[in-house]
């Protein structure tokens, strides 16, 4: 499962949802796999406002991945040469090249996958298993 997916998941136990510590879920004993995909620069620029940056940084730390910058990048940071004096003005979307920041973000969000391991709720401590890349959120109690 992709790390970007964790941006949209929380503990399945109802009473946890109102508690801030139920998000994000914390990966534990995770086996990671890189599944390569093409960098999609327009998408990366557009997704920035939807990212829970602090939480994403926490997940990366917990997985032992390289630190993400303390503040989220801006759309310009994602374009190669975006901060140079030769600004991107006049260049069409198609001509823009992803910067190293964009490539790093792409790797974290969309290429780094948890294949095996657990996701742990910070509120109730429940552990959800991840097997063959699929997370299991079924609760025994709910299935009675």
């Amino acid at each position: 499962m992709k790390l970007l997916t964790l941006n949209f998941l929380t503990c399945a136990i109802k009473t946890c949802k109102t508690n801030a510590s139920s998000f994000p879920l914390h990966p534990r004993d995770a086996e990671l796999e890189i599944q390569e995909a093409d960098v999609n620069l327009p998408f990366l620029k557009n997704i920035l406002p939807r990212l829970m940056w602090e939480e994403l940084r926490t997940i990366c730390k917990e997985l032992g991945l390289p630190d993400l910058p303390p503040t989220p990048p801006t759309p310009t940071d994602l374009i190669s040469g975006g901060n140079s004096t030769d600004t991107t003005e006049g260049r069409t979307q198609a001509e823009q090249e992803p910067s190293q920041t964009a490539k790093d973000l792409h790797r974290v969000l969309l290429e780094t996958c948890i294949q095996e391991g657990k996701l742990v709720c910070g509120c109730c401590g429940h552990e959800y298993a991840v097997k063959e890349g699929v997370a299991n959120f079924l609760l025994p109690g709910h299935l009675v």
């Binding site: 992709k2 997916t5 699929v134 959120f137 079924l138």
Partner: peptide, 9 residues
Amino acid sequence: IFLDIVNGD
């Protein structure tokens, strides 16, 4: 962008 399918209720 396809994220994932999760097994859940």
